[in-house]
Write a protein that binds this DNA or RNA. Structure first.
Lengths: 152, 152
DNA sequence: GCGAGTTAGTTAGCTGTGCTAACAAATTTG
DNA sequence: CAAATTTGTTAGCACAGCTAACTAACTCGC
């Protein structure tokens, strides 16, 4: 029961963590953006493509929700992916309004085969960490994902 | 010596971690951006202001380096901060080329007093974590910062 | 079954962040 | 002192996010 709110010695106050992670997210993304550009696909597009590939055919609205983005933003991301031949739009047979998005073979292979190349730069320093450090990052990722989910 | 590269059971392969964190950074930033906008200052501006406030008067070039951004980008960020009265430009007395950027009282108070409001949304779910979870996030932040630093 | 309301997506237009290329001004150096 | 370097700015591009306003399609109540 001393697990929450108490703020004893050695504990991490939420405010400090929030500041720290805010800054980290900005800097991490700036770095990754450079690599993404070299890899030919930007972060948001790659992220959307990943959902499409692993989430099967999905409606544009669901995709926007999954990516925590407004519909117009997703419309544009999907159009960009479509123009590169990575995804295909399909009409729903029972509801003429909805648009289903499906990955093409090219889109799938780009995501899976291109995966290593894309994250290579980030992987190098990660591979140099100890197992314990990687475990910490692994655990932190799960916690952070939950935190993000609760931001609503 | 089993600490690196081995990939035994329970270890986290660098590739998986890289993918995971890439995605996390994108989603975290999208969420934070909304709050930043409400708070009146965007992430990059806030981040730059923070360096200016705590890093004393600093040249524009050093600021760009610290923020891992190109000079033109920093020129624009500083101009935006200046227009809001949060920072001031100063000419160097010995070198006419350099521009020193200093935080105004308004800038300092916005950063310190406004800090809680700004990160409040992120703090709520963080405060709900256990001490152990916050410690994991704290440790992960340090590791990630190093990883980012090594991306070069 | 038809008109009102709702839902899914798109278009238009804005703000903001990042970049490179090209430049001006100041300083340093040969 | 002329050439090279350094510091910062301007111009212009690509991209991602948003809201407002719209079209098309569906659902529901009468």
């Amino acid at each position: 029961m001393a697990s929450n709110r108490a703020r004893g010695r050695g504990e991490q106050p939420a405010e400090e963590l929030a500041d720290r992670w805010h800054s980290l997210a900005i800097h991490l993304l700036r770095r990754l953006r450079r690599e993404d550009v070299k890899a030919g696909l930007t972060g948001p597009r790659l992220s959307a493509l990943s959902v499409i590939v692993f989430g099967g055919p999905i409606t544009l609205g669901d995709l926007a929700t999954a990516e925590q983005v407004r519909p117009p933003t997703m419309t544009r991301l999907v159009r960009a992916l479509e123009e590169e031949g990575l995804v295909r739009r399909e009409n729903d047979s029972t509801d003429g309004r909805v648009v289903r998005v499906r990955a093409t073979a090219k889109g799938e292979s780009l995501l899976t085969a291109g995966r290593t190349r894309r994250v290579r730069k980030l992987m190098q320093p990660l591979a140099a960490l100890t197992d314990a450090e990687r475990k910490t990052l692994h655990d932190a990722a799960a916690i952070l994902a939950r935190v993000i989910g609760r931001l609503s």
